[in-house]
């Protein structure tokens, strides 16, 4: 455990001295948290006067007895739930890409592998160092968002919706699972490239399914509900197990020293 902690601290000490990573980790949560609050504030009048006819029928039906204005607010803010789900994808990719490709570039992996650290310890340290800041940033962003909603014109129905099982599952279950997926995907990509920016750009394809989810929701084809969230979580858990297995296979000493170029 002590060795994992050492790796995590080392990663943070080194990676956060990189301005690009620091920018991604700090700026992205600020932007993704501020954006829905700003939209909510600027559309507060329009939303309250909104007509449920403007909403996708499947969503309007799910609103039940609440006013069409509140339903509109919930619909609007739900689009930004996707942003909160993107954070645990984008941030770990940036950290893991710079962490692993950076070690390849400076050839610092070999001395590290020559220590008594085990491969699972090293992999766990690197994964935690990339995933934890992303998960924490998402959670902190979400808390700030929840606190900020009443101040920008969010009604009680909206707050109830944000603190409902869909959002909470998305933020506290799906988010961390997505972070694990992103880290392991970034590790696999990083083993094949030598430029951190290339690793980051290639790894960013993990965001594509989330974008599909976003556009599906905007078009009214998909309604984010608890069932869908639980299904997503289950699918992610299966994908994560597969990616952890593949990542661990790829992150073997001999593979790193003889095949990583």
């Amino acid at each position: 455990m002590n060795r994992i902690q050492t790796i995590v601290e080392k990663e943070w000490a080194e990676v956060f001295k990189n301005r690009i990573v620091l920018f991604t980790v700090a700026f992205l949560p600020i932007l993704f948290t501020a954006l829905p609050l700003i939209i909510l504030y600027t559309t507060r009048g329009a939303a309250s006067a909104g007509d449920s006819a403007d909403l996708p029928p499947s969503f309007a039906k799910a609103c039940g007895s609440i006013t069409s204005g509140e339903c509109m607010q919930i619909f609007l803010v739900n689009q930004f739930m996707i942003l909160f789900m993107m954070m645990p994808l984008i941030i770990p990719v940036a950290i893991a890409s710079y962490s692993i490709v950076g070690e390849k570039a400076t050839r610092s992996l070999e001395p590290l592998l020559a220590t008594p650290i085990t491969t699972p310890e090293l992999l766990a340290g690197k994964s935690l160092a990339a995933a934890v800041p992303a998960i924490l940033a998402t959670w902190v962003g979400f808390v700030v968002f929840v606190i900020g909603v009443p101040f920008v014109g969010g009604g009680p129905a909206l707050i109830t919706s944000i603190l409902g099982s869909v959002w909470l599952t998305a933020i506290f279950v799906v988010g961390p699972l997505m972070a694990v997926m992103a880290v392991n995907f970034a590790i696999m990509v990083s083993s094949r490239v030598n430029d951190p920016r290339a690793a980051e750009q290639i790894s960013a394809v993990v965001v594509v399914p989330i974008l599909g989810l976003m556009f599906g929701q905007i078009a009214g084809v998909i309604v984010l509900n608890v069932q869908l969230m639980m299904l997503t979580a289950l699918a992610l858990a299966i994908i994560d197990v597969g990616l952890i297995y593949l990542g661990a296979r790829l992150f073997q000493r001999e593979t790193i020293l003889t095949k990583w170029k």
Binding site: K10, A13, S108, P111, A114
Partner: peptide, 15 residues
């Protein structure tokens, strides 16, 4: 129980 000096120093340059 062994010490290894690798062909390139492989230091953490930012630390």
């Amino acid at each position: 129980t062994v010490g290894l000096l690798t062909e390139t120093p492989g230091l953490y340059d930012r630390l």
